[in-house]
Design a protein around this nucleic acid. Sequence first.
DNA 1: TCAAAAGTGTTCCAATTACACCCATGG
DNA 2: CCATGGGTGTAATTGGAACACTTTTGA
Lengths: 226, 226
Amino acid sequence: MDVSVDCVVFGFDDDELKVLLIEQKQPDGKTIKPQKAVPGDLVQEDEGLNEAAQRILKELTSLQGIYLKQFHSFGDPNRVSGLKDRDWLRSFRTHPERRVITVGYYSLVKMDDFNPQAASFAKKAQWVDVYKIPYLAFDHNEIVAEALKVLRHELMADHIGFELLPEKFTLSQLQKLYEIILDKKLDKRNFRKNILRTNTVEPLEEKQSGVLHKPAQLFSVKRKNQ
Amino acid sequence: MDVSVDCVVFGFDDDELKVLLIEQKQPDGKTIKPQKAVPGDLVQEDEGLNEAAQRILKELTSLQGIYLKQFHSFGDPNRVSGLKDRDWLRSFRTHPERRVITVGYYSLVKMDDFNPQAASFAKKAQWVDVYKIPYLAFDHNEIVAEALKVLRHELMADHIGFELLPEKFTLSQLQKLYEIILDKKLDKRNFRKNILRTNTVEPLEEKQSGVLHKPAQLFSVKRKNQ
DNA sequence: TCAAAAGTGTTCCAATTACACCCATGG
DNA sequence: CCATGGGTGTAATTGGAACACTTTTGA
């Protein structure tokens, strides 16, 4: 039995919530219609799960050192039994027929920190709108759906999510981020009250400029010991 | 690499919150000082994780059909590297040196529904007070601690826990259950308000008898379609 | 002067906390 | 009649939800 890690990387670009998908590399000579998938790979013999998640994400996307959290494990015996899935695995895995149990991780990044790069076994990585995800390889649709559920829950409970914004941001940008992730409108005044009460952001002595309306106060994430 | 499932079974007996532990069976002829552990075993080639958890729990404890939920996976490469742990594994596993990644499940049962029975590879199963857990095999102390954290969270969020009581119970019994699991005192009036508001229990036309004080109203769990 | 988003308070309701006395029974 | 746990209500506080107008800037 093999164990893999799959990383559901959510990205934000001021307008949309996206997921980072890779396109499965075509084996030389053969023509398998490529499928999209979440970046993931087998855990190596000597590494922990978190470690593996970091390594795999780095290998496939060059992202490192980011918030990356285990959320669920998927072990249906038939999760990798689609015909295409098996063909693709046969094209480069040492033991393509082995059952694989996968541990799901998710993560949040801001997209402009990061230029997806092709990795050894994927033709390319790409951002896909989270509300327009195509049919993915294996059980990755289910994995992404579960990750999104957990992300929303953690966003509300722990107010993670600042990572997704530039260093200086306006509260409207932050609100938009929440709205996009939660997929619903929020009340401006209540949102501001809530965020300011958490004491996790602080106003800078700086405002927007060059905008066609009243310039907004800029904020930054408050450092821990301050 | 192998995958196992470990089941943290919490039991309640009117007074204490306990965890079901097994004592590792001694191999014939050899004398290894037995250690306690949470019931767990390898996932078989053709079964899903939930299925495996149910099977293993049943094999080791004869419990079946209970609330059993995945909560976290543990994959530290050294989680099974204690000397005793390796000795013990060598005594009966086919591939004792293989790395094992385990998926943790937890469960809630009422203790008097259930008489722990010895199983093929364990000398005996026993209930141990959750606040007096000895040093366990592998990383099982960590697994139990994590399970307890999740249990408390779910208890508050979803008001699970009725399973732990007899069919007819008083609100004081239920409150005691919460207090023991959460390890803190609760206010009687507020507790009753909260529970009754959830609409998950209903009063019976019956009271306690034979007690040396005012007899309490008995309640039962409300059936879904009612 | 207009368009566009920024910024700001109050009211209402629901939920949570703290708190103390009388009641019914068996011995 | 006493000891034991059962059972009950209210006031204060807190957090969340709804809601509309004025301000500042660049074009």
